[in-house]
Amino acid sequence: MTDGIPLVSFRGITRHYGEGGGLVRALDGVDLTIERGEFIAIMGPSGSGKSTAMNIIGCLDRPTSGSFRFSGVEVTALSRDERAKLRRNYLGFVFQGFNLLNRTTAIENVELPLIYRGTPKRERQEKAVRALQLVGLAGREHHTPGELSGGQQQRVAIARAIVTDPLLLLADEPTGNLDTARSREIMELITRLNQEKGITVVMVTHEQDMAAYAHRVIRFVDGRIASDEARKAA
C-alpha cells in the first residue's frame, strides 16, 4: 500500500438497485475522501445510503458506476478473489450484533481471521492473546460469549477485528446493543485504537453522542452527502 495518498477515495460513486419504475438510487454520485488515521462517523436516516457506502468501502458490495480507490488501488477493477484478499488483509469489521461463535472461547473467536490467512497455530494464538490484552480482556481468553457481558463481547469482537493489524476498522452501529456506560467504554476503546495504533476508523451510527468521538461527521440524505463537517477539538 502506497503512502501519501488517501486511504479511501470515492469519485462519482453510484449504487442502483432494480430498474425502470422500481429503480432505487441508494448512492447517487458520491465524492468522498478519507485520509489515513482519520476517525469518521457516518450518519443519516434509514435509506439514506450510509450503510451502502460502508458496504462498498468494506468490499462487501460493488458500485454501479464511479471510481473507488483504496490506497490508490482501483477496487472496481479487482476480481472477487482480489477484493476478498484486500478485505482479509487490510480491513477489520465490528458489527452491532457482535457475531461471535457461541460455543468457542474468546481467544478462538479472535483467532478466526488468522485461520483464514493460514497463520500458524502458535503465532495466531500469540496474536490473539495480545489483541485481547489490548482491549482489556487479559485473563478472559478462555471464557465463552455466554460467560461475558455485552460490553466484553463487543471487546472480543473488536479484538477479532484488529488482530490482523488492519489499516481500516469499519464499525457498524458498534454500541447499538449496549447501555450508555458500556457504549462509552467501547467508544473510548475505539478512540484509543485510532490515536495510539493509527487505525483509520469509519463508523456508522444513529447516535449523536457516539458520533461526537469522531474527527469528522458525514451525513447522508437520499443517497448523497448532505454535510461533511470536522469536529472542533475539545
Rank of each mutant, 00 (worst) to 15 (best):
G97W: 11
N99F: 04
N102T: 11
T104S: 10
T105M: 01
A106P: 05
E108P: 05
N109C: 11
V110D: 07
V110F: 06
V110H: 01
V110C: 07
E111C: 06
P113Q: 11
P113A: 14
L114T: 07
L114N: 08
R117C: 07
G118S: 08
G118T: 15
T119N: 03
Q125F: 13
A128Q: 05
V129W: 08
R130W: 08
R130A: 12
R130T: 14
A131Y: 05
L132E: 07
Q133T: 15
Q133D: 15
L134I: 15
V135M: 07
L137K: 02
G139M: 14
R140Y: 14
H142A: 15
H143I: 07
H143W: 12
G146H: 03
E147D: 10
E147T: 10
L148M: 11
G151D: 02
Q152C: 10
Q154I: 04
R155V: 03
V156A: 05
A157R: 05
A161Y: 07
A161S: 09
V163R: 00
T164F: 15
L167Q: 09
L168E: 03
L168C: 13
L169C: 06
L170A: 06
D172R: 12
D172T: 10
T175V: 01
G176L: 02
G176A: 03
G176D: 09
D179I: 00
D179C: 00
T180I: 04
A181N: 08
S183V: 00
R184P: 02
R184E: 15
M187A: 05
E188G: 08
E188L: 14
L189D: 06
I190A: 07
T191P: 00
T191Y: 14
R192K: 14
R192W: 03
R192Y: 04
L193A: 02
L193F: 05
N194A: 08
Q195Y: 06
Q195L: 12
G198P: 01
I199D: 04
V201K: 01
M203D: 02
M203V: 07
